[in-house]
């Protein structure tokens, strides 16, 4: 196994927090005293990492004597995506290492129409890549390496296709593709190709179901896996068929970023939402649907 170790990541966060914050102020050309609020990611996510961020946020908020705004990480992804693509009321497919969610706004909240019942798509690709002995390089995550190999794939190997209602399951697919990798009968390129084709077809199918169900006029793709060109092409096809506009969030704002937390914090703050320090504990499993999105026009 591999991946991010929560405590090591948290140690890293704590180490670079000071520098990162001062650089952000420099680049923005403002002084800390010019800030109106401190927004921070309150969840969902890994406990130690969230706590490192929350601690820095509490410190700043107390020191500067300005309000704290706890932001839901998934809400922030959707809001920054809407801002940068000018989408108004989209079906969002948010696909990353930890999330595979199809969401749309309804009755005051971002509802989850479909999601993975087990592991996320990004995690599946990463685990497969590690099992295949691939190595991540700077600026080239596993997803990009698998995408590149998939382009050389020619022969489709049939893998479990698991759509349950609007929900997905990737664990069977991952087990099957890793087993095929170990028995060595297929080329790595063919397996990357088959993994992508199968998993992305599943994601596109549930997105289309949500689109048909809600009749929304925009499809928003965000999260790290959203950078994949093949997934983009599939979603563009269904968006077109349902006469919806297809919006891809640029990488800079599709991967986890500070701007999205700040923006979601501003939206909430404008509605008078702040988070008292005593309620600023992190929420590891904070559901998208638990957030009342008061700032969204119904």
């Amino acid at each position: 196994m591999g991946g991010i170790h929560p405590r090591e990541a948290a140690r890293h966060h704590a180490k670079v927090a000071g520098d990162t914050i001062s650089r952000a102020f420099q680049e923005a050309g403002i002084k800390p005293k010019d800030a109106t609020i401190i927004a921070f990611s309150q969840g969902p996510g890994l406990g130690p990492c969230l706590r490192a961020g929350a601690t820095a946020a509490r410190t700043l908020s107390t020191y500067l004597n300005i309000p704290l705004v706890g932001v839901n990480h998934c809400v922030a992804h959707i809001e920054i995506g809407k801002l940068v693509t000018d989408a108004k009321d989209p079906i969002t497919l948010y696909v990353s290492g930890g999330n595979s969610i199809v969401s749309a706004f309804d009755a005051g909240r971002y509802r989850i129409f479909g999601e993975t019942l087990d592991i996320a798509i990004g995690n599946s690709i990463d685990v497969f890549a590690r099992e295949a002995g691939l190595h991540q390089q700077k600026g080239l995550p596993f997803g990009a390496i698998v995408e590149r190999l998939a382009k050389e794939g020619k022969e489709l190997v049939h893998l479990p296709y698991s759509v349950k209602g609007m929900d997905l399951s990737f664990s069977g697919l991952l087990t099957a593709v890793v087993r095929l990798l170990k028995n060595g009968k297929h080329s790595l390129e063919d397996l990357c190709y088959s993994l992508q084709e199968t998993a992305f077809s599943m994601l596109t199918e549930v997105t289309e179901r949500a689109l048909a169900h809600t009749e929304k006029k925009e499809v928003l793709l965000t999260g790290g896996v959203g950078a994949n060109k093949r997934l983009q092409a599939m979603l563009a096809t269904i968006a077109d068929e349902h006469e919806s506009r297809f919006c891809v969030v640029p990488k800079q704002y599709a991967l986890d970023n500070g701007a999205m937390i700040a923006w979601a914090g501003i939206l909430a703050y404008k509605q008078g939402i702040t988070t008292p320090v005593e309620e600023s504990f992190v929420r590891l499993k904070w559901r998208l649907e638990d957030v009342k999105a008061l700032w969204v026009e119904p």
Binding site: I4, A9, L46, G97, G122, K285, R287
Partner: peptide, 26 residues
């Protein structure tokens, strides 16, 4: 199992259970 839980899991004394051994991506 999924990300269906809004509340933190509680132990008997209502303390948060930390999944320190998870090696998953955030």
């Amino acid at each position: 199992r999924g990300r269906y839980v809004s509340e933190r899991r509680k132990t008997k004394n209502d303390k948060e259970v930390l999944n320190n051994n998870s090696f998953i991506h955030a």
